[in-house]
Amino acid sequence: MKILVIADEESRSLWDYYTPDKLKDIDLILSCGDLKPEYLSFLVTMAHCPLLYIYGNHDGIYERKEPEGCICIENQIYEYKGIRILGLGGSCWYNGGSHQYTQKEMKRRVQKMWLKMRQKKGFDILLTHAPTKGINDEESAAHQGFEVFKELLEKYSPKYHLHGHVHLNYGRKPRVTKYKNTVIINGYESYIFTYEE
């Protein structure tokens, strides 16, 4: 299954210079947040496949104008063709804006999902806006990762953790890295990968 991951900045290639061949083989689009609702609606229309999204820390607009034709999976485990995708949006708290959480608040969000995780026997993809603490994150309060994400990776060993928030143009952060058995992908702008069954 070919999956397009998007986050943080609209891809000019996919929007301003769109051609049908760019999305023709995409089976699923996953948004890691901080993208215009019009952009998500455009992509889901052109790709003819589902687009699942979570909130970034700059997505307060979604409360007034949701992306049309897209599916929000905040605090859910959404199953698509046998792939279980856990959605946890938002960033670490730094100025009190929408979709910002302290480490304790994110931990509570995860704890509230224990029954869903048990019923689904875990998940295959962790879809978040912020990265995991200590993996692809930064020291600044605004770009720290969440500690509880590492606990999720260790306990459930998902195949992938997809995140955004830390823009690749901030410095020499890797696009793709690995933590134990989990491949971690920074979805900044756009990235396509093949999900192996």
Rank of each mutant, 00 (worst) to 15 (best):
M1P: 12
L4K: 08
V5P: 01
E10Q: 15
S13P: 00
W15R: 12
D16I: 11
D16H: 14
D16P: 05
K22A: 04
K24M: 06
I26S: 14
I29K: 09
D34W: 14
D34E: 14
L35C: 14
E38P: 01
Y39W: 10
S41C: 11
S41P: 12
S41E: 14
S41L: 10
L43M: 03
M46G: 04
P50C: 13
L51E: 06
L51T: 10
H58E: 08
Y62C: 07
E66G: 02
P67N: 09
G69K: 08
Q76H: 09
R84P: 00
R84T: 07
L86Q: 07
G89Y: 02
G89P: 03
G89R: 00
S91M: 06
N95L: 05
G97A: 08
G97E: 02
E105K: 10
E105A: 13
K107H: 11
Q111E: 15
L115H: 13
R118V: 01
Q119G: 00
Q119V: 03
K121G: 11
I125L: 08
T128E: 07
H129E: 03
A130E: 06
P131R: 04
I135D: 02
N136T: 12
S140R: 15
S140G: 11
A141V: 11
G145L: 01
G145A: 05
F146P: 08
F146N: 02
E147L: 09
K150I: 04
E151I: 00
L153E: 03
E154L: 12
P158C: 04
H161Y: 06
H163F: 12
H165P: 08
V166M: 09
V166W: 02
L168W: 02
R172A: 11
R172I: 04
K173V: 07
K173W: 11
R175N: 02
V176G: 09
I185Q: 07
N186V: 11
Y188F: 15
Y191Q: 09
Y191F: 15
I192F: 11
Y195V: 06
E196N: 13
